[in-house]
Design a protein around this nucleic acid. Structure first.
Length: 426
RNA sequence: GGAAGGGUAGCCAAGCGGCCGACGGCAGCGGUCUUGAAAACCGCCGAGGGCGCAAGCUCUCCGUGGGUUCGAAUCCCACCCCUUCCGCCA
């Protein structure tokens, strides 16, 4: 959420930011509502001040045994007028809030202008895509031969876009989760969180999934609960409505969770394999930081995600999102992408964003910069460290051998009981 | 799911419809005392909004939302959450 005061005092800045995003927002309606609100408030408050003084007078008169009938009579009318004004303020507030919640964040000045994802900018590459001496197979074929992923039976249980992991496949997924969490907790300084996988509407609004992206989520019928699309939601909302001490910051959390996405509007895209599922595992990194440090923290967050790819020996590149593709809540975003032989290109495997105070304002997460100082909004950041299903797919493809086996990356072997290769079943 | 009790400021906690945005205590901050510390004592110490260059003025907030009333932390209704007991249950 943007600060209404910023919009009020600097509408052109906001207008320009929205233009760069390729968005149109009803700024004029918003400004008119804001003005109307303040006029109503001013009138209501004058009347309330009068009523408060009259109430004291009534109390004084009653104690003195005097008659206050005329005052009470007069205040009855004032009360009605206050009621009417408050009702209108409520309605204006509701509409104002509705508009405010639908306005995306302002891109940071370092974000390149662009009109579509085609204008995203590659910022660096690591590793060399392997030259295969044979025709490499897509991961779903590799997995089928190994008997470690079963999409047909998953469809029987839950439908399309679900997977069943089996045997070494299930173990590999679990190994990846443990490996990632261990690296982030033991070497990058994050604290492990295991959050609820369902979150309520207030939490979803806090991080920006609601109200705009309701159709992307699964909702539990008859309840206020949604299956989380990412651990970002429960973990960021851990500190909703809190005022943190300055010396608690920065807070670094790492959380494993299953993630659930309706993938409405993705019909026909990535229909095979693990790339686009209704349910997938992810290890998520979340930071709460002081505003003046958030851009340094973003660079370190990306580096922490990249470190996993390096340790797994997976070639990748990092792409910076342009203004058109930066995401609703983010001010700046990098997407690490892993090399996927079957796609013949790099595929998103993480997404690291600085939200500045956009989520903090929505979720009311503040800190006190110094003793006695007024609370300020923190900056929140998050990034995948990494999407586990896609990482498993990348390993199957990049580490496949001609005989159908898959070499286990060295870093994972301690998590696989020392297993060096996953061999086809006999 | 049933019954009972409870949600008041960072924490604990008091609060006959009007001197209550809220007694008191703890924690924190500043000071007196002390060689230093502790203790004792004194003072400060919630958040948000509106108007204002500012000093300041003012409004709102006692789980949430409604209602009654000239006036609600206090009375009424609904909902949420917590605790205990019972039932069920991985």
């Amino acid at each position: 959420m943007l600060d209404i005061k910023l919009i009020r005092s600097n509408p052109d800045l906001v207008r320009e930011a929205m233009r760069r995003r390729g968005e149109t927002v009803p700024l004029d309606e918003l400004l008119a509502l804001d003005e109307r609100r303040r006029a109503l408030l001013s009138e209501a408050e004058q009347l309330k001040a009068r009523r408060n003084r009259a109430s004291e007078e009534v109390a004084r008169a009653k104690r003195a045994g005097e008659d206050a009938g005329h005052l009470i009579q007069e205040m009855r009318a004032v009360g009605d007028r206050i009621q009417a004004l408050d009702d209108e303020v409520r309605e204006v507030d509701r509409r104002l809030n509705e508009l405010l919640l639908a306005i995306p964040n302002i891109p940071h000045e370092s974000v390149p202008y662009g009109e579509s994802e085609a204008d995203n900018v590659e910022v660096r590459r690591w590793g060399e895509p392997r030259r295969f001496g044979f025709d490499p197979k897509p991961h779903w074929d590799v997995a089928a031969r190994l008997g470690i992923l079963d999409f047909e039976r998953a469809a029987k249980v839950a439908g399309a876009r679900f997977a069943v992991y089996r045997g070494a496949g299930a173990r590999l997924e679990r190994a990846l989760i443990n490996f990632m969490i261990d690296v982030h907790t033991q070497e990058h300084g994050y604290t492990e969180i295991l959050p609820p996988f369902l979150a309520n509407a207030a939490a979803m609004t806090g991080t920006g999934q609601l109200p705009k992206f309701a159709e992307d989520m699964f909702r539990c019928e008859g309840t206020d609960l949604y299956l989380i699309p990412t651990a970002e939601v429960p973990v960021t909302n851990l500190h909703r409505d809190e005022i943190l001490d300055a010396d608690e910051l920065p807070l670094y959390y790492v959380a494993y969770s299953a993630c659930f996405r309706a993938e409405a509007g993705a019909h026909g895209r990535d229909t095979r394999g693990l790339i686009r599922q209704h349910q997938f595992n992810k290890v998520e990194l979340v930071k709460f930081v002081r505003p003046d440090t958030s851009y340094d923290e973003l660079e370190r967050l990306v580096a922490d995600a990249e470190d996993i790819l390096k340790r797994l020996g997976l070639p990748y590149r990092v792409v910076q999102m342009c203004t058109a593709d930066v995401g609703f809540a983010a001010a700046k975003k990098y997407d690490p992408e892993v090399w996927m032989p079957s796609y013949g290109r790099y595929v998103e495997i993480s997404s690291c964003s600085n939200f500045e105070d956009f989520q903090a304002r929505r979720a009311n997460i503040r800190f006190r910069p110094a003793r006695k100082a007024k609370p300020e909004f923190v900056h929140t950041l998050n990034g995948s460290g990494l999407a586990v299903g896609r990482t498993l797919a990348a390993i199957l493809e990049n580490y496949q051998n001609e005989d159908g086996s898959v070499t286990v990356p060295e870093a994972l072997r301690p998590y696989m009981g020392g297993l060096e290769r996953i061999e086809p079943e006999r």
